[in-house]
């Protein structure tokens, strides 16, 4: 195995200082943690209510997807799902980023979904969301689709995904959503 790069604490520290991180978490996720995060985000974004509400609702949809679908499981305790949640702000955007492991067999289905979303305008996205919401099969599979479509709608389609296959079984999947700030002076860096 190739030697991994030595961890540079100074670089890590200056990066997390520079990037204006509102939230950064990697580890097991629970409903309790999620509600604590959601309260914290709301408090931090009180000065920018218009965009803050969007950041909040997008974060909730994406974090719930991680909670339901992550294929990485903590073997201690309650077998909680493991994932990564990040919220950054740097003018003129907030950025909500979530990451989790998925099965390689689900990669093409997810890529297709994002390809579909990316090519739809607002009205077509609304139609697509209605079609997913009306589809009982989608409900049984708890298909993550409707949350992603809602995130696309809420962010004016500033959503993208990246997938990196790790081995034959698992891939790392992350979603990045940009939300345009309304109150540009907030939060103070």
């Amino acid at each position: 195995m190739p030697q991994s790069q030595e961890f540079n604490f100074f670089e890590y520290h200056s990066q997390i200082s520079r990037e204006n991180i509102l939230l950064s978490y990697k580890g097991p996720l629970t409903d309790v943690l999620l509600s604590e995060f959601s309260r914290d985000i709301r408090k931090k974004l009180l000065e920018d209510p218009g965009a803050g509400k969007k950041v909040f609702s997008i974060f909730m949809e994406l974090a719930q997807n991680v909670l339901f679908y992550s294929k990485e499981v903590n073997h201690f305790g309650n077998h909680d799902k493991v994932g990564t949640l990040v919220i950054l702000h740097d003018d003129p955007f907030y950025r909500v980023i979530t990451g989790n492991l998925i099965y390689c067999e689900d990669v093409s289905r997810l890529m297709d979904k994002f390809e579909t979303i990316k090519n739809l305008d607002r009205e077509a996205l609304r139609e697509y969301k209605r079609a997913l919401r009306n589809n009982p099969n989608e409900q049984e599979s708890r298909g993550a689709g409707i949350g992603l479509v809602q995130a696309a709608l809420t962010s004016d389609n500033q959503i993208e995904c990246k997938i990196k296959e790790l081995n034959d079984d698992f891939a790392f999947f992350f979603v990045l959503v940009k939300i345009t700030k309304k109150n540009k002076s907030y939060p103070e860096s």
Binding site: F56, S57, E61, Q64, I146
Partner: peptide, 8 residues
């Protein structure tokens, strides 16, 4: 506020 699951 309601999430997409509630919207269904």
């Amino acid at each position: 506020y309601f999430n997409t699951s509630s919207s269904r």
